[in-house]
Each structure stands twice: as C-alpha cells, then as structure tokens.
Design a protein around this nucleic acid. Sequence first.
DNA 1: AAGGATACCTGAATGC
DNA 2: TGCATTCAGGTATCCT
Length: 280
Amino acid sequence: MPELPEVETIRRGLEKYVVGHKILDLAILHTGIFEGEKEQIIGSQIIKARRYAKGLILDLDNSFSLAIHIKLTGQLIYRDAATEKIEVSKDKVGTIPNAFTHLIFYLDQEAMLYYNDQRRFGWIRVVPTNEVLEMKFFKTLGPEPFKDLTLDIFQKIVSGSPTKIKPFLMDQEKIGGIGNIYANDALFRSGIDPRRPAKSLNSGEINLLYESVIKVMEKSFEEGGASELSFINVLGQEGGYQRHALIYGRRREPCIKCGGVIEFFKLAGRGTYFCKNCQK
DNA sequence: AAGGATACCTGAATGC
DNA sequence: TGCATTCAGGTATCCT
C-alpha cells in the first residue's frame, strides 16, 4: 500500500525534518537493506528529498545520494528533541527502535532517522547523485499522476494497449505510482470492469478514469495516506485513507453506490475488488 | 516482446 | 481449541 500518496507524504516529512541535517553515523542492525559503504555518507549533509513514483532519493552534499524504496512495510521515522513528544503509532511501530529497526542514521543536533521494515523487502542504496536516475528502477518508470502524466498521454497509452486495465494501471513502466489500492478505487469510481483490455475503453471512460486516479489520490493526500499495512509518516503517525476507501478492502461488504455485495478475485495475481452492478 | 507466475518475508486471517 | 495453510502487496526475475 505505500503508493504515490504514501511515499509523497513521507517525502514531505523528509523535506521538512531531515533535509539540512548532517549524517554523523550509521548503525546497521541487520544487513541486507543498506547497500553501500558507511564512509560514503558519513559527514555529508542531506540537501534534498526527491520522489519518483514510489521511489525516494535523499541527495547529499558530497555528490552521493541515498536511493530508497520502502516496498510494502518500510518505515522512515524521524526523532529529535522536539518530535520526541509526538507519539508514534502504537499499532504500527510500538517502540523505537523495535525488532524491525534495521538502520539508524545518527544526525546532527541529536536527531535520528530510523529505517524499520517488517518484511525486509525495501532497500537503501548509496549511488552517485548523477547516476541515480540511471538505476533500473528509476530509469524505466513511466509518467506519473500530478507530474508528467497528462490526459493526452494517458489517452494515448491506454488506447494503445491490449493489457487488462487494472494491471495496466499498476505497471510502473507504463504509469508510475499507482498500486493496488488506488487502482481498485479509481476503477470503481469510474465504473469500469478491471478485466477489460485497456484499449477497449472509450474516450469518455478514459477521461473519467484519469480524473478518478487524481481524485482518489487527492483524497488520500488529505487523509495523510493509507495505513492498511504498516504505512506511517516520518513522525510515526498513521494515515486515514483506508477508512474512506471506495471499494478496496471491502470484500463481502455492501457497495457504497448500489448496496450490492462486493466481490473479490485475483487479477494478474493481485487482490481485486469488484461490484458487478457498478463496474461494466 | 509481453504478460503470467513465483520469490522475497512475516504477522494476521482463515481453514479444518 | 490449535495447528497449518493462505494471504497481503511492490518489484525483480524467471518462464512461456
């Protein structure tokens, strides 16, 4: 569930709290997440927090960057004297550090940045700044909502693809940033069956789907993201989108539009929620 | 080439 | 009740 709105929520927190700090030291509690040498980052200052789709980049002032992907359960938590008083989500974090804390970045001014990851799918790589976007993950990303995915481009790529529309939306090389939650909700909001070939959508449907992707993500920004799994912001707080999801996570519940029972099936290996009355 | 299945990992939910 | 199996989702990789 960390999709574009969740990762952007984290980026904004990094920009506000972490950028400007110097990295004094790094504690590696468990190996496998951090790829690089401590020496490449210690003593440098964090000067920028960038995001491309679901990927994050912290640029350092020594011409290196930290490329970060939190995958499903990664958490970046910032702590200092001022934020110490803010309680992190008991539900999602408990104590800091906890058993899933893999990295602790010791920053100047007695601040710390923790990387937690229950399932250890995430990664943090040290890469020369001018090579970060050459990494396969960033290099192959498609255009993303709110950025370079214009309606024109969306029309063009949707109408030219035989792929089923839901896996199409979630393919990061076609469009960057959409994951399972927002793909489900955007298709429901648009009244489109997730199994339809992308190119079978007429232009009215494509316009509506484009608008729906934007709308469900805007709603999520307002709610501070979706904390269905382990997502929290850099202060350790949960988001609330999961309580407002249109169809995602509502298996066997009544549809909010027609009252019919929401069905659930796998599509391209992913959990798919579907209202047969409302999605054609 | 493109799309489907599988691996990665672990807590929670479900099944018998 | 309790143990075992399944499930969840983002991406890389293997396979067809």
